[in-house]
């Protein structure tokens, strides 16, 4: 059934369950009457269009919509903003759409680690280098959960067992092998000395990842932090470690130990930012940097971050580009170690 195939989108954001549903109509509302900018700086002369390269209701869609809503509500953008869903190919369709908009600076799209992972897996011909990084907005982190009665109490317990009997331990996640949930686990495990290619990873969609953890079919659940909070509060699962550098703030999440504090010097950031078509001018980039910076500092965005448990992580275009380059390299190395080489870029 097709709906269960949206797994690339599925691991995409911390709210991977959210996007596990890829299908569905998209929608957009391009309002705005346009308006000219008389200043020398770039000012869009028609309404902006933010593309979510996935279906309505998914993770990218959520970021795109809350950003659009925030930019309008806070009066940061007057020209009007439309959100358009360009679904398909785990993002590839949306990316090729934006790539064709060279010279149309009104267009941008929401991105996260799959923008790096999908091309590396050979599933899209465009990589981040084919776009103009505008701004990164937020960061989110992965969590590794086990059932409450599990014998492991911290990541080192788990990884020690894994080194000895990798075949006995099943790791479950929503996304496909080589994508988010798999790679975040592989990265931390590798940091602890586990051979990444020995990890037994099963991909399960439509809520069955958590189900399989709870019924004992799987031993470890690799997911986003948000998904684990309620389960931890109910006492059904415990979180062995999260992929953030430092502990997060918040009621339950502050109890989640980081991998770093357990002596594993690895992190994994699920970043969320905006990129535009290739070869945008400096003035255009500056316009977006300013716009997104303002959004990032707004009350609206602060509230949004809180309700989704996202961390503030603004980067301007240059920082974002450097960050992407580093991330891509580390992902490529990791994929090689995991033993997935699909001839991607």
């Amino acid at each position: 059934m097709k709906h269960s195939k949206y797994w690339i989108g599925a691991g995409v954001l911390s709210l991977s369950v959210l996007s596990a549903c890829g299908s569905g109509g998209g929608d957009s509302s391009s309002g705005g009457d346009g308006g000219g900018g008389e200043e020398e700086n770039y000012e869009p002369d028609s309404s902006l269009e933010i593309v979510a390269p996935a279906g309505a209701g998914g993770g990218w869609d959520t970021v795109a919509r809350s950003a659009a809503e925030g930019l309008e509500e806070e009066g940061i953008v007057d020209q009007g903003i439309g959100v358009v869903n360009r679904e398909g190919g785990g993002g590839a369709n949306g990316w090729s759409y934006i790539h064709n908009q060279e010279g149309n600076p009104e267009y941008s799209f929401v991105a996260s680690p799959p923008l790096l992972l999908v091309p590396l897996n050979g599933q899209s011909e465009y990589s981040y280098e084919d776009f103009t990084p505008l701004s990164n907005m937020i960061a989110d982190y992965g969590a590794f959960a086990v059932t409450e009665d599990s014998e492991w109490d911290d990541l080192n317990d788990l990884f020690d067992d894994m080194k000895e009997n990798p075949d006995d331990i099943t790791v479950v996640g929503e996304s496909s092998p080589g994508s988010m949930d798999h790679m975040q686990f592989a990265k931390i495990a590798a940091g602890a000395g586990v051979d990444p290619s020995s990890i037994k990873y099963v991909s399960a969609q439509d809520g069955s990842a958590l189900t399989n953890l709870l019924n004992g079919q799987a031993d470890v659940y690799s997911t986003g932090i948000t998904e684990t909070v309620e389960q931890v509060r109910a006492g059904d699962v415990k979180v062995l470690g999260i992929t953030a550098e430092e502990r997060l703030e918040g009621d339950t999440v502050s109890e989640f130990p980081t991998a770093t504090e357990q002596g594993i010097e690895e992190t994994f950031v699920n970043w969320r930012g905006f990129l535009g078509p290739p070869n945008m001018s400096d003035a255009e980039i500056a316009y977006y940097e300013e716009t997104f910076k303002e959004l990032s500092e707004s009350d609206y965005w602060q509230e949004t971050r809180q309700s989704y448990a996202w961390e503030e992580n603004y980067m301007d275009s240059e920082e974002f580009e450097e960050f992407l380059a580093e991330e891509e390299e580390s992902m490529q190395d990791l994929l090689d170690e995991v033993g997935i080489d699909r001839g991607g870029e």
Partner: peptide, 9 residues
């Protein structure tokens, strides 16, 4: 637990 695409939304 969202058991389907719809309940996930």
């Amino acid at each position: 637990i969202p058991g389907s695409g719809t309940t996930a939304v």
